[in-house]
Design a binder for these strands. Structure first.
Lengths: 114, 114
DNA sequence: CAGCATCCCTGGAGATACTG
DNA sequence: CAGTATCTCCAGGGATGCTG
């Protein structure tokens, strides 16, 4: 980066944060990136503690940002599938770095305590 | 990364998020990374809309995570200086990626609208 | 100057019930 | 099955005043 003007960088950083932050967004993204397309009910089962309402809103927000797509099949009973867009895969690098740094940080803090 | 088990990656990602998330943490970090050591009052002036209470708590949380250091000079009137630790600079890569992706995303969404 | 203590308010998130 | 619609609650954050 080389931080020129903090205020300039700020908007970029906070835009990214807005996409990723949300109690369930990271884990939803990880599941979709890992397992590919998933139905609403599958995601619900993969995240036992999430409420339907929260799953819906988090998915809607990710969809609005073009990170995932929502495909509705006109069947009865209804079927809706979610998957990460090509564009959304651009978040992969960020998630990867956060994953790696985060694990290292957990170790760092564990060492510090002892 | 290559996402093996989403649940494994989750803790790493969310650990990183916990450090960065907080209404003022990114901008505080950017200022300290850009401008080096700063006094409490300087930061307060750089962030006109932050309350003293919030500045204090955000700084304390970053300090607890070893991201910044707090140096108190035993003078009257008191002087307290904050700076990013060597360890804390490890967040630089993440902030950089978020900055770059975020700016691109703002453009992406602007284009989409038109 | 660099805080802490207190009170207060809002919005993110949970629980529950209903529906095309 | 894949959602809405309400009601509710709590914690993050804000406003203000006091102090070593």
């Amino acid at each position: 980066m080389e931080i020129k003007q903090p205020e300039t960088c700020r908007s970029g950083v906070e835009t990214s944060l807005e996409i990723i932050v949300g109690k369930w967004k990271p884990i939803i993204l990880l599941h979709l990136l890992h397992g590919g397309t998933k139905r609403f009910g599958e995601l619900k089962r993969l995240l036992p503690d999430i409420t339907q309402k929260m799953l819906t809103t988090q998915l809607r927000e990710l969809e609005e940002q073009d990170i995932i797509t929502r495909k509705v099949y006109p069947e009865v009973p209804p079927r809706v599938e979610y998957s990460v867009t090509e564009y959304g895969r651009g978040l992969y690098g960020i998630l990867q770095q956060m994953y790696e740094w985060g694990l290292a940080h957990l170790e760092h803090m564990a060492k510090k305590k002892s």
